[in-house]
Design a protein around this nucleic acid. Sequence first.
RNA 1: GGGCCUGUAGCUCAACGGUUAGAGCAGGGCGCUCAUAACGCCUUGGUUGGGGGUUCGAGUCCCUCCGGGCCUACCA
Length: 572
Amino acid sequence: MARILITSAIPYINGIKHLGNLVGSQLPADLFARYCRARGHEVMFICATDEHGTPAELAAAKAGKPVEVYCAEMHAVQAEIARGFRLSFDHFGRSSSPRNHRLTQHFAGVLADNGLIEEVAEKQVFSIDDNRFLPDRYITGTCPNCGYELARGDQCENCTKQLDPTDLINPRSSISGSTNLEVRETKHLYLKQRSLRGKLAAWIDSKTDWPLLTTSIAKKWLNDGDGLQDRGITRDLYWGIPVRRGDQPWPGMEGKVFYVWFDAPIEYIACTAEWADAQGLGDEAWQRWWRTDKGADDVTYYQFMGKDNVPFHTLSFPATILGSGEPWKLVDYLKSFNYLNYDGGQFSTSQGRGVFMDQALSILPADYWRWWLLSHAPESADSEFTWENFQASVNKDLADVLGNLVSRVTKFATSKFGATVPAGGEFGPQELALIEEMGTRITDYAACMAAMEVRKAAAELRGIWVIGNEYLQSAAPWTVVKTDPDRAQAMVRLALNLIRVYAVLSQPFIPDASATMMTAMGSQDWSWPEDIQVAMRALPAGHGFHVPENLFRKITDEERLDWQTRFSGVRA
RNA sequence: GGGCCUGUAGCUCAACGGUUAGAGCAGGGCGCUCAUAACGCCUUGGUUGGGGGUUCGAGUCCCUCCGGGCCUACCA
């Protein structure tokens, strides 16, 4: 029994996330959390909404709502969708919580005390009509290099040349289109990451078992050019955590807020405190997950995220933690994912291209999506969602291999022997061979799950489902029953027990179908089959069960074509 | 421009430098009839993007060319 802390990258607040976002962090994190709980470990699984920054303010303005109201509403929406996908967070918090305000200000304070914060005066583009400073990419103009008229202030999408906003010809605000811009001086706090470079590099070098994707991104940032750069951690925005030095004001920084990427990862910690508050527990309840001086020394901490988040989790956030000099838990294993593409291109939030989480649930239950997404998780490279592939996987794996197996076993058993587990006969060589093979395969499956090899684990699980069909086919109880009913009863008894074990094993991937299987078997014994001999006999003779509704339905060609058109373009 | 990743069967993916490059799906054949026309067995299919090199041995390492993707620090 271990203590396992799991965080999923926190989704940004400005809208409903698409399937690519889901499969890159929350879903695999949930898979791992469910597996760890199933193995009896003590798990803390944390996620939240990332609520600060310019896009949130703009999205709120577009929705015609105060940003606080907008974020509260979107948090509720995202929480509801997360429940819909059965994401089993212990707490789904908010980076705008009072807990995060206090903790973020605390970290800034101790970093300053340790000499790791520097005030820097810099020039920024200010939009008079928008009454706000504009991030570089919110300025549009003509590229001085190639003449492209929609170049952004940070980079020209057409010629890929990196730009400074002041390079642009005819610059204007991307928000309002206003050309009434001026360069103003402003002052910001910088985290002196450069002075932590050695420590960070040594720490990264010690992580020899991390995915290549993770360490190569970190090393690139550490070593490229002049090496790791200091990073601004404040912004001139209204919506965010006010800059304070611990619980004291920060002279000269009035009206400024911390940069979203400074406060967002701190929310992992704050969110655990939010959890404790919600449970009516004291500070010690969350500190034992995060403070190595307060009980967290035996915690193993896993982070899940898409590759775009890697620099912040391998460098910026660890810089905050290490720089504080306080005994906070650092990540032990960082699992990163590539991107999921959609039907020959990228998912696009702005163009409404692809399938968004709410839409997905509106057409099919969560298990269908969970299965496809996890069994095709973009682990080694970007992967691609196509409706043909989705239809084929769902119909074959879920409906035919697993769903039909449960159906054929329960219906045959009921029609021949009634609604209880039959008592006749003993397990013969075939049955014992199946039990033996289950034991081996479960060990392999568990190894993949523990290693967070998501796709491979899905393939192992599918293999476990398949051997049920293989056994039935060769045992053929429908033939045996005519001449040796006792033997057929033993076969059915084994097959019914197999369904319960499948429910336990499949639960991390397809929790709803697993619950249906378990309930149909008249059991709530979710214990992991540590001893397969015992597990395959858990349902005794005379135990009641029933035939469940079909676990999965098939996706028809008509539906597939319909969805293909519906989700190809602009979101309704 | 720089860095990193990637290219294997029609499709989605495997393969510590080591037998004859493997699975699933799709395709073909056979079997079965309990089941959601489901299941099982057998089977077709590959010059591992091109070229060169290192090695007893290369999908794997090196060089080069071609294609795809990501990042490049003020979107998050």
